[in-house]
């Protein structure tokens, strides 16, 4: 065990993956010589060479398109998209090609690419360095969507992603890259997909969150405890596959659900969670399902503190749920 920040844990995970398997390679903008704009790939090119840690030309569709070709040949490429906000030139490759290769070829061409990308607000990044658009990818059959919230999970989920056989969108909460640290197991540490983590146990209300909203939700839960409200915080870890059983079990226990995400509310992943709870746990509910989310506006710069869910907004939603029944 070593105490690491989240971004250091990503870095250790990449070192581990490349050491384990010569077929693993990295490609992206500024990831080699520069070690990545967030230093997530620091030291990797020096260790593994420029053929396996590739500084690419500036084209996201080129990065993902060529990664797909590498994967078709049997390599295990890990592509970095510098900010999630810049992923759209590659959207066609991800949605039309990567997600569908296995299906459309009748299983003849599995296509295993891991796409790592920092996402989310809270770093004063304005419209184009802040967005959380996981819902686009959750909506596309064939992709897995992973969002760690702790250093140990960042490494463990990343290694699972690399050894998986399906395309994985690996979203790194850049706001907590360095503000969160924790013990990370050495070596081949893997965290399975589709298994949520109970970040805090509670009995009055279930707070469902992922990525950077997990520490925010934990902060809210601590404050709620002072008022005598026992909040359970479920860290989903992977949105696809979703640990539906864990979500339902928690909601059935507490009878109240507060869903938290940074993304805009309309058609966000919270809507899917709310629908599943309504479909399968409606009779356990004692209060309406609540969502605490970003607003249906573009992501702001000066007013980002108003846009992002805060512990206060989460607390207020939880209080209201408890008051309701």
């Amino acid at each position: 065990m070593t105490e690491l920040t989240l971004v250091q844990a990503v870095n250790r995970g990449l070192f581990e993956a490349m050491r384990q398997d010569p077929d693993v390679l990295l490609l992206g903008e500024d990831i080699g010589l520069n070690g990545g704009v967030f230093r997530a790939t620091e030291g990797l090119q020096k260790e593994f060479g420029a053929e396996r840690v590739i500084d690419t030309p500036l084209s996201e569709c080129g990065i993902v398109g060529t990664a797909i070709g590498m994967a078709l040949y049997g390599l295990k490429p890990i592509a970095e998209i510098q900010f999630m906000d810049f992923i759209y030139p590659a959207f066609d490759q991800i949605v039309s090609e990567l997600a569908k290769f296995r299906y459309r070829s009748g299983g003849q061409y599995p296509c295993h690419v891991v796409i790592r990308t920092p996402y989310g607000g809270g770093i004063r990044g304005g419209l184009y360095h802040s967005q959380s658009t996981e819902a686009f990818f959750c909506h596309t059959a064939g992709l897995k969507v992973v969002v760690p919230s702790t250093p140990a999970d960042a490494k463990g989920l990343l290694l699972t992603a690399v050894h998986d056989e399906d395309p994985v969108i690996f979203l790194e909460p850049k706001r907590i890259y360095r503000s969160v640290s924790g013990e990370v197991p050495e070596g081949d540490h893997r965290v399975p997909f589709g298994v949520a983590r109970t970040a805090r146990e509670g009995s009055d209300v279930s707070i469902l969150a992922w990525g950077a909203m997990v520490p925010t939700s934990l902060e809210a839960a601590a404050k709620l405890a002072d008022e005598g409200i026992s909040a359970e915080v479920i860290d989903l870890r992977t949105l696809v596959p979703l640990d539906e059983a864990a979500v339902l079990a928690s909601v059935e226990k507490t009878g109240r659900a507060v869903i938290v995400h940074e993304a805009a509310r309309n058609a966000g992943f919270g809507a899917e969670l709310a629908a599943r709870i309504a479909e399968k746990a409606l009779y356990s509910l004692r209060a309406p399902i609540a969502r605490v989310t970003g607003y249906d506006t573009p992501f702001p710069y000066a007013l980002e503190h108003l846009y992002l869910p805060t512990p206060e907004r989460i607390e207020s939603a939880a209080r209201e749920a408890v008051r309701a029944g």
């Binding site: 398109g65 060529t66 070709g69 590498m70 490759q93």
Partner: peptide, 12 residues
């Protein structure tokens, strides 16, 4: 879209 796939295959 297959053009970039070909380039990745060639790289591999």
């Amino acid at each position: 879209t297959q053009i970039t796939h070909a380039v990745g295959l060639g790289y591999a």
